[in-house]
Design a protein around this nucleic acid. Structure first.
Lengths: 224, 224
DNA sequence: AATATCTATGACGAATTTGTGAATTACACT
DNA sequence: AGTGTAATTCACAAATTCGTCATAGATATT
């Protein structure tokens, strides 16, 4: 998965650096803006910003103003940096559609925890679909689509294919497959995997060849 | 629209009364519990609780424990009442899936604002009429129409069909269906779902096929 | 090239799951 | 209590899946 982009807006460079450091260390991609105008410019010119962290207190165009403008066009989650315990701020913020608050001063852990909570709440909802090489696996619907054509799989077939796709490019021994797709208490014939692979390949048509046989070992899913 | 039910859990009756008053004044229906066990009993016996407000500090079964137990079966939004500025609490809470915090002491406005923010975030699907593929479900009137022809359903049938439609395209296990359409304390035969599905399908005529069987898993509502 | 080992495939049947009609129970309203 | 409706359970039929096996084919090793 790609890194998520977070736009950090604060007029104090010291504060920006602080926030950025924590986030970068947690594998986010951070873009900085040092005032409101710049923030809006960057936001509307940059695609795929997953979250905006806004300081309220900024000269000329303050955090509220930035928030309002963004909200006219976007539902991107917004976290506000606020002075400790200012209730009026929080109330205004909820009306403007702010997702979360962080009071200064804050600890790195709180920062990261709230960022992740917000992202989980917003983006996390439908991360249930895996797509690769024209193959789409919708875990929620338990549905395979190949080039947007729905293809019915049995329960086991779906589980097996999901396991293959999640481990894209990794060679999997039969034992490993049994332990992960079957219950641990299954002690039957490992050859049953072959049979399921056969069915998968035939149901998947042209794309069936993505399930590769590794002689003497097992199988590997790989898109050319 | 009906009043939303909020479960308030706190061992101090003074605090419960305080919270209740604010919420009642804002047109919520408040249920009280004075300890963790009672909270869990009430929660799992009462249908349609839209939000739980939990005090962390309670004797015997504390707020965390209650939160954990609820989260095993339900995604109901949870707000925690916490002592001011306790970071460790917040961090633990995010892991447990807490939606929001309110530090004591708090003002009525903050309380109501956060409650509404959380409900707005989660309760999103609250339309009166759901329409999809020629099927129209009027929640208020408890009436199904198929191609504008009214069709009478029993209470359970309507609830079940609503649950299917709201989760359009999502595979639902029998267990999940039981937990959401039946009360949490129903421990009867899951096959009763089959019977209701049968009746639904037959009453829905041609559109009955939208309720699909997922062999070895459960059911899925999906319009082709 | 011969041999041994591993994999692919089609067919079959046991086991499991689901569909369905009928019987039973629960429950509200007279 | 009696009636009628809805909800649940039950029993059996129908459908589907899963694993095994036998055989054919493929790959590596000598």
């Amino acid at each position: 998965m790609e890194k998520l982009k977070i736009l950090v807006v604060d007029d104090e460079s010291r504060m920006r650096k602080l926030v950025k450091d924590f986030l970068v260390r947690n594998n986010y991609d951070v873009i900085e803006a040092e005032n409101g105008e710049q923030a809006l410019d960057i936001f509307f010119e940059t695609k795929g910003i997953a979250l905006v962290i806004l300081d309220i207190m900024m000269p000329r165009v303050d955090g509220w103003q930035v928030c309002r403008e963004i909200r006219q066009y976007s539902d991107v989650p917004i976290i506000m940096l606020t002075a400790k315990g200012d209730e009026k701020d929080e109330l205004l913020g909820f009306e403007l559609g702010v997702d979360e608050y962080i009071s200064k001063p804050f600890s790195p852990k709180i920062l990261v925890a709230r960022v992740e909570a917000v992202l989980r709440r917003t983006a996390g909802i439908d991360e249930e679909v895996i797509e690769i090489g024209g193959i789409s696996l919708d875990k929620a619907a338990h549905q395979l689509k190949i080039d947007d054509v729905p293809i019915d799989l049995s329960y086991k077939e779906f589980e097996l294919l999901t396991y293959f796709v999640v481990n894209n490019g990794v060679a999997l021994s039969r034992e490993k497959i049994l332990n992960n797709v079957w219950n641990y208490d299954y002690f039957g014939d490992a050859r049953t995997i072959d049979t399921h692979v056969k069915k998968l390949r035939s149901k998947m048509g042209e794309k069936g060849k993505y399930i590769k046989t590794i002689w003497g070992l097992g199988y590997k899913f790989e898109v050319d």
